[in-house]
Design a protein around this nucleic acid. Structure first.
Lengths: 215, 215
DNA sequence: TTTTAAAATACCCCAATGGGGTATTGGATT
DNA sequence: AATCCAATACCCCATTGGGGTATTTTAAAA
């Protein structure tokens, strides 16, 4: 059975080259080629890939985002991210995108095929340069990870609105002015927000809001 | 020129085996074998390694700690961490320890030699299993916070003491009682702490203190 | 050695914040 | 009809944070 491969790649030359390689190799079957991820859900549904070859530098939605969406909605689909990895910051984001493997853009075709085969069989191919960059990014850094428990704090719309204003740095008085309610009402809402978020002060609430993406 | 290799490994059998392999292979020279990291600084100074082969499961100080110390004090020394990686939590710590590569304990000898050679030449060997575990640790975690900086906030001893009491949950009054100084003096110190830490409230200061390990 | 800088101590004022209440009103659910 | 909840609003008071000023001691620099 052939490995069904889908390509997301904005550069037409690279796209065509990859498609040609897959077409010319036994065991691989390219079921879709897309130049951006704007219709990713339709694209995935229509092409039913085993492996997605994802470029992370694309116009519009970045490949990292698309990879995240795909791995959340279709966890059985393996994602192989290809990148130039010159930006050290992107490494970290890419790591969190839920990809199964990473490959360098200037790796030779046979490396691509190997990597596709490896992720398909449950492996985690990672070219040596990627591993090196990754280690460099983490070395001696004392990083603190915050994984979002994705709790539902059941904030009302009004509470979310006020929390957003707090995140933006406004104090009670200006929030009151902006929302056309009294200072005391703002305080009442904030108290409720704190209780629901299980926090005891402004900055904790703000951090939780940002981490959970409650903005 | 031979690659100077130093071994940290608590298991005598493994230790001797590794030493024997290195002794029997051209291009490698084992300049030190140690069963724990208690005298790591002396050990490193005396053996002048190019590459350190570090076991992370050791009695006393863990290999992760030792790796951190070595990579901070002797950044030119490459560190190759060997592990069984059954504990998913350790992956992250190991990542931050500043190692140049990771190898599995049940990898065959020739893999060890390859990996040593690779780190010596600036590479980042990482066995496929390690890469897989690593990716699994990060995948779909939506990790947000990366606060390294390890800045030196230049807190005085007294300020560190008061910050610790704040971390422990005491308020100004009890801190004043505990330290035999006045309430107002506690407040003065706290103000200074906030300025030095670049924070605006208690909980931010506490978080920063914990993250930076200022306790 | 004098000067300067800092750390540690202490107090002032006042605004902002947090926690505890109570209360009314208007929808939504039961 | 009764009940619950969100949104509104006010009360009191303790705690916290930011802005000062000031003295003493100790350490470093000129």
């Amino acid at each position: 059975m052939d490995i069904r491969v889908v390509i997301f790649e904005d550069n037409k030359l690279v796209r065509d080259a990859l498609q040609a390689i897959l077409a010319g190799t036994q065991g691989y079957h390219c079921t879709g080629v897309f130049e951006d991820g704007n219709r990713w859900e339709l694209d995935i549904k229509g092409s039913e890939p085993d492996v997605v070859l994802m470029d992370i530098e694309m116009p519009g939605k970045s490949g990292i985002e698309i990879a995240k969406y795909i791995s959340e909605k279709y966890p059985e689909v393996k994602i192989l991210i290809q990148t130039v990895f010159n930006d050290s910051e992107k490494i970290f984001q890419a790591l969190c995108a839920g990809a199964s493997g990473y490959i360098l853009k200037n790796d030779p075709p046979h490396k691509y095929l190997e990597a596709i085969n490896e992720v398909y069989n449950g492996g985690a191919p990672m070219s040596s340069m990627v591993a090196k960059k990754m280690l460099g990014f983490f070395s001696n850094k004392n990083i603190v990870l915050v994984s979002p428990n994705s709790e539902d704090y059941q904030l009302s719309d009004r509470e979310k609105e006020l929390l957003k204003l707090m995140v933006e740095g406004h104090n009670y008085k200006t929030i009151a002015t902006k929302t056309f309610i009294s200072y005391e009402t703002v305080r009442t809402h904030v108290k409720h927000i704190y209780k629901k978020l299980h926090v005891a002060c402004r900055s904790e609430a703000i951090q939780k809001a940002i981490q959970q993406g409650l903005q």
